[in-house]
């Protein structure tokens, strides 16, 4: 069961990264259809990678039917497919999924701080993500954040190349700095009038880079200017690469624990969350396996997990006494305890 949860966590984030690539390529397919690049049943003639990608997309979406249909029918079908493909817009930073607006709370808060007025559209967008954070806590970090997947791949690389070293190199960091960065960033955004935290927030950077690279690659193709389409190694890409190196060589989840402003906001929202990992202290054998397994370097054994836990559930399978479990806490009972947790 818990193994399946880890696979689901991996799969969802992998699909999110894949969908960013697919959305960007489908946007280019749509441009090709709008420009009338596809004539009749034929495919694009040309040998560049862009030709090959667009032909593959066309073959996959239109299929074998292209042989039998006449030209106008085919065009109609291509336009229908292109229109349907455009129903998913954006990425984890802000997503328009079949007309439903989902916005990262950090993006919304930042825009509100920078513009200094409250826009109803933003509030509608951040409503669902905030509700999820209020109930489940910091689950964005462990289930959705594509940069988090990058960091977990960093875990895998570390184990591969340093098999003898300790599985989780432990570096104590001051977790408060991310809350300071969140506050300071929002303050600076308000002063400057430009949202700033989005420029260093890894998931937003990563998705934008994917979009931008694919877009610029194809733009060079459309403009017959292949120099413009050369892969852009921008500052943001180097920044992400640096973060992965820190992850591998310095400490696991260094960014998530100490710096990430988005994680800080999710943590704050999830402070009184209803669903959380809990230790049944009467059954616990104090083997500390869960403490070793926790990538966020929390202590599920001796303390109740606070707002920092992102519910990745890596501690559940290692618990041999099975005293750790995901529980739905009764909010009224919690309140009676007087916030002792």
């Amino acid at each position: 069961m818990s193994r399946r949860i880890q696979w689901a966590r991996f799969g969802i984030r992998f699909l999110i990264i894949l969908s960013a690539i697919v959305v960007a390529i489908l946007a280019q397919y749509r441009i090709a259809v709008a420009r009338g690049e596809f004539q009749g049943s034929g495919s694009l003639t040309g040998s560049s990678a862009a030709h090959a990608i667009l032909n593959t997309v066309d073959a996959a979406l239109i299929g074998e039917a292209s042989e039998e249909m006449d030209e106008s029918e085919l065009l109609q079908r291509r336009e229908f497919v292109a229109g349907a493909a455009s129903k998913i817009r954006g990425n984890t930073w802000s997503l328009d999924f079949l007309g439903t607006s989902l916005t990262d709370p950090l993006a919304g808060l930042e825009a509100i701080a920078a513009s200094k007025n409250i826009v109803p559209a933003i509030l509608i967008g951040i409503a669902i993500p905030i509700c999820i954070a209020l109930i489940f806590g910091r689950v964005f970090c462990s289930w959705i954040c594509p940069a988090g997947l990058l960091f977990e791949l960093g875990d895998w690389v570390r184990e591969k190349f340093h098999p003898k070293s300790e599985k989780q190199p432990r570096l104590r960091v001051w977790r408060g700095s991310k809350y300071a960065l969140l506050g300071f960033g929002l303050l600076m955004s308000a002063i400057v009038g430009i949202p700033l935290l989005g420029a260093i927030y890894p998931p937003a950077l990563m998705m934008r880079e994917i979009h931008f690279s694919i877009g610029s690659f194809f733009r060079g193709f459309w403009q017959d200017d292949f120099l413009a389409g050369a892969l852009v190694i921008s500052g943001s890409t180097l920044f992400l690469l640096g973060l992965v190196l820190v992850e591998i060589f310095v400490a696991p989840r260094f960014w998530c624990r100490a710096v990430c402003p988005g994680g800080a906001l999710q943590s704050l929202l999830g402070k009184f969350r209803l669903v959380r990992v809990k230790n049944d202290f009467s059954a616990c054998t104090k083997c500390a396996a869960c403490v070793k397994a926790c990538p966020m370097q929390l202590d599920p054994m001796s303390k109740d997990l606070g707002m920092e836990c992102d519910s990745c559930m890596l501690c559940l399978p290692v618990c041999e006494a099975q005293s750790l479990s995901l529980s739905f806490s009764d909010f009224s009972k919690e309140a009676k305890k007087g916030g002792s947790s």
Binding site: I31, A34, R89, W93, A111
Partner: peptide, 18 residues
């Protein structure tokens, strides 16, 4: 515009003509 734009790429994805 600069204060409100989230740099989210949604308008780019919606644009049918590129």
């Amino acid at each position: 515009f600069l204060s409100l734009c989230m740099r989210c790429t949604r308008c780019m994805d919606a644009c049918p003509s590129g």
